[in-house]
Design a protein around this nucleic acid. Structure first.
Length: 259
DNA sequence: ATGGTTGCGAAGCAA
């Protein structure tokens, strides 16, 4: 069972690359973020042609989350509640092969003195409360997506360059840790404790080719699922222009394989 | 080096 997450940075712009990647890599479940689509523009037919059921939560230009699954997709539920809807569509859950899968797009935060930063911290706290309300840590729970938080300095190309910036601040990392403490594991970390492997690189200034990235896209698994994990990888190739010439997102794919 | 790029949508914002 292959479970993947990918911030696609506009599914409208990225659909050819996403389909190309799915055909080549055959994930069983793919969580997507930043689709930037309204629900009525979501290309469910294109996923169906590849054998995937899908669900989407989006209202247009910003944000938007989706799940595609070829192992079933039941009981979709979107949003954290009415307050979240004011700030866009950032959470979609569905049950796939008995796993409660969550596709999440955590607010960026912009800067430490921004109102958006406070919103980011609040949103992470509400995500933890949502997980506790709707799930038990003894169940098969996966929380996948763009967390916009690098869990550790080893997940940042140059920690010194991020002093005073978002994604690495102590309150953000604490808010992420509180989600983990509910009963989830950052599975990639277990397989790659050394760090220095990234999931996002700024489009600008050739950062990708210079290795200037961060690991902010995570697959968090409950204990029962973590015990089934046999590998966790980041597909760096999907951050490059594809063999068919499709342009990449600024994020790439995180892929976990379960027994 | 305070730059640089992409997406949306048609100027400027968000990332």
């Amino acid at each position: 069972m292959k479970l993947a997450t990918w911030n696609v940075n506009s599914l409208g712009a990225r659909l050819p690359l996403v389909l190309e990647w799915m055909e080549a890599n055959a994930p069983d479940i793919l969580c997507m973020q930043e689709t930037k689509l309204a629900d009525d523009a979501f290309p469910s037919g294109a996923f169906a042609e590849l054998g995937y059921e899908s669900a989407h939560h989006g209202d247009g230009r910003w944000n938007g989350v989706a799940i595609a699954s070829r192992v079933g997709l039941e009981d979709p539920a979107s949003g954290l509640g009415s307050e979240e809807d004011v700030h866009g569509c950032r959470l979609l859950a569905a049950t796939c092969a008995g796993i409660r899968v969550h596709s999440v797009y955590v607010p960026n935060g912009r800067s430490l003195d921004s109102e958006q930063y406070r919103f980011k911290l609040d949103w992470l706290a509400r995500l933890r409360a949502y997980l506790a309300e709707h799930n038990t840590p003894e169940g098969d729970v996966a929380v996948c997506g763009d967390f916009n938080v690098a869990p550790d300095d080893a997940d940042v190309w140059d920690p010194a360059a991020f002093v005073g910036a978002t994604h690495v601040s102590e309150p953000e990392r604490r808010a992420l840790q509180e989600i983990l403490d509910w009963g989830l594991e950052d599975t990639f970390r277990r397989f790659h404790p050394e760090g220095g492997i990234f999931s996002w690189w700024d489009y600008r200034a050739g950062n990708f080719h210079k290795g200037m990235g961060m690991r902010i896209d995570l697959v968090l698994l409950s204990k029962s699922l973590a015990a089934r994990a046999v590998s966790a990888e980041i597909d760096r190739d999907a951050r490059k222009k594809s063999p068919r010439g499709n342009k990449p997102s600024d994020h790439t794919v995180v892929l976990v394989e379960l027994d």
